[in-house]
Amino acid sequence: MSRISNEQVKHVANLARLAITEEEAEKFTKQLDAIITFAEQLNELDTENVEPTYHVLDMKNIFREDIKQTGLPREEVLKNAPDHQDGQIKVPAIIGE
């Protein structure tokens, strides 16, 4: 049985903000299904009482001193923006008509 459906792949693509074609959806369904099936071997292991490792060094709440620092200059930041106007980054209309 397949672990992941074509519908699910399209749903995930939407969550990931990727536009995929029908053809790609089909290809990704097959490939992701194979990878997920492979990953399910992890179920052979009993992890009932095992703590997850999120960080190998077990460091927590690392703060640096709260000292005021100058941010990046606006013109520097805008250098890599695909489109900008009057010192602001420009995007298409967010609210439709």
Partner: peptide, 24 residues
């Protein structure tokens, strides 16, 4: 896509958390 799926609602425990436990 794989990562988004593994983190998505309903699959997080089965895949992401499980993998972190195996990492331990």
């Amino acid at each position: 896509m794989l990562g988004t799926f593994a983190l998505s609602s309903g699959y997080y425990d089965a895949y992401y958390k499980k993998a972190q436990q195996v990492r331990t």
